[in-house]
Nucleic acid binder design. Structure first.
Lengths: 331, 331
DNA sequence: ATGAAAGCGCTAACAA
DNA sequence: TTGTTAGCGCTTTCAT
């Protein structure tokens, strides 16, 4: 059995409460006893039982993280950084994958609520009502989504699309296709809005294709419609779909970027590894994950801050120009 | 505040222990009171406090999962299936990513031990001594590694290599290069052993190149040595490295599979998405994750089984022949 | 500065 | 079948 606080107390010749204080409020006990306690604790390999502590403090020391689909390369990077930052703060991470199922998302979040101090909901698919329902019970930070004044770390999708269009325009393109993903997704709406605005301003023709599932197969399925539309460039909802596009285009004998320029969103690691490599709107996933945890920890310290404007952070995307975009073929 | 067992007891007009029984040992209470308790619990939205329960039962209802690097596409699939299976068993999953650092792995595993009923260590990099140290405190299942008679779910890497060599030999290849990954890795040793045996039996020339880091860049770095060795085929430690190879080979103007056939291991999703698609030794990651959890749950029920032979399971790999391998060029 | 005592929410003996 | 009691390991009043 693991050593308890009473074992340490006995070994150090003090009371359990003194041990507790020596460990969690070191400046309240005399230096002498503090040292004695620390030594005894170390010798016994004592580590406090978090469950017992949580029972009385109401804090578990755990954070919950909910993601739609770990198989999408966007999410592992987020999870990785959330986990890393949480660990720095001595918090464990409870992970839940919802398989893109909004209902499962709600129930998973609900069940996590009881075991964590706070929740990071990454790209949640649930509707606003459910979102606010979950938010009532425990501090929640949204990642890659906005919902009113709820604490959130998001990306400026509109600006990302602006960058993409500026790039395509500079290459001489006069038309763009949009390959849509899940229409219920917040980021999907933002990206489409951004693309509409940017193309209109730039005087480009926009063709909207989709919705398609946000997977490789979705991109494959969209490719022929894109080709048929006669555009010279295409922006996909995300990189995974863009890779599907690339694949099908190659099968069809459509050269990228000579016949068609392709842009994705996310900057998943893979997008730099394929050939031609994929031009993409890069999102700072790692930074976002860390900031989400930071926000959550701040909220834990000071719950009143929840409505503070500083609890909403928006990260700037950065266009990464790679092989899949090129100047439009003339003649 | 959330409802406690006493609130339910009061509402149902029974004692707290009856509530406890009605909920966790339904057949021990009379149908009438059971219904009354259930209704009261439902009405109050009662959910037991797992920490409090754990304090007395010694069970947390949590599983720990430690992985080396979520950025390697091999692992998200494992994590996903572990999480899914754990949830079916009403267990939450505490996830830790060690960033390929053996020391971090030990300390993360140690710190998780106190908060979980059992641990799944996926592809652990720590040495055997540390492994056994962790194992002492809590049931542990190894995934993608063997260590003596410790409970484990692993892949038959030797047979995987046999399949790969048989395939290459059938295509007319007489020589193979091995692009090595992390030499401390268990699966690396197994694969190399299997490859040596298989090539010797088949009378193929084997050239060993590496060690390289198990990333895309590692494969990129290895490519030129492979070309210089004059082989007609190459097997990489994993798919991510094989993709690096593919990339560099294309840059060099070496045609795959015409000039060189390439085989990877893992069957990461990406390997079917690139062009040419990657022939690979497929590993049933999802099945492995589920089985690891099953094993752990069985161990939790009956700790004595730990030394039982049935606690070691080996899954058969399956070669997936795709575009990156072809008949050897004659002349 | 330290100790004694109470109690967080729950379950498991033991009685009845 | 049900209730009473005790206590899991810890923190936190309240005394001293």
């Amino acid at each position: 059995m693991a050593a308890t606080i009473r074992d340490v107390a006995r070994a150090a010749g003090v009371s359990p409460s003194t041990v507790s204080r020596a460990l969690s409020m070191p400046d309240v006990v005399s230096p002498v006893t503090r040292d004695r306690v620390h030594r005894a604790a170390e010798r016994l390999g004592y580590a406090p039982n978090r469950a017992a502590r949580g029972l009385i403090t109401g804090r578990t020391g755990n954070l919950g993280l909910v993601v739609p689909d770990l198989a999408n390369p966007f999410f592992p990077e987020v999870v990785k950084s959330v986990q890393a930052r949480a660990r720095e703060a001595d918090c464990a991470v409870l992970l839940a994958d919802t398989d893109e199922d909004a209902a499962a998302e709600v129930s998973l979040a609900r069940s996590l609520v009881k075991q964590v101090d706070g929740l990071v909901l990454c790209s949640p698919r649930m509707d606003e009502e459910d979102l606010r329902g979950v938010t009532g019970d425990v501090p929640v930070v949204l990642l890659n989504r906005r919902c009113g004044d709820l604490p959130a770390v998001s990306f400026d999708n509109v600006d990302g699309m602006r960058q993409a269009v500026a790039h395509l325009q500079a290459l001489g393109h006069r038309s763009v296709a949009w390959v849509g993903g899940p229409e219920a997704s917040w980021s999907h709406g933002e990206r489409l809005t951004g693309l509409r605005t940017a193309t209109e301003r730039a005087g480009l023709r926009l063709v909207e294709v989709g919705a398609f599932p946000p997977y490789f197969e979705g991109g494959v399925a969209a490719a022929d419609q894109v080709v048929a539309s006669g555009v010279t460039s295409v922006v996909a909802f995300n990189d995974v779909m863009a890779l599907g596009l690339l694949s099908r285009l190659q099968t069809r004998g459509v050269a990228v970027p000579d016949d068609l320029s392709v842009v994705g969103v996310d900057d998943i690691p893979l997008s730099g590894m394929v050939s031609p490599s994929l031009t993409t709107v890069g999102l700072a996933k790692e930074r976002a994950g860390r900031q989400a945890v930071d926000l959550l920890l701040a909220l834990l310290r000071d719950p009143e801050r929840a409505r503070d404007a500083r609890t909403r952070r928006e990260l700037a995307p950065q266009l990464l120009v790679r092989g899949s975009t090129g100047v439009v073929r003339t003649g």
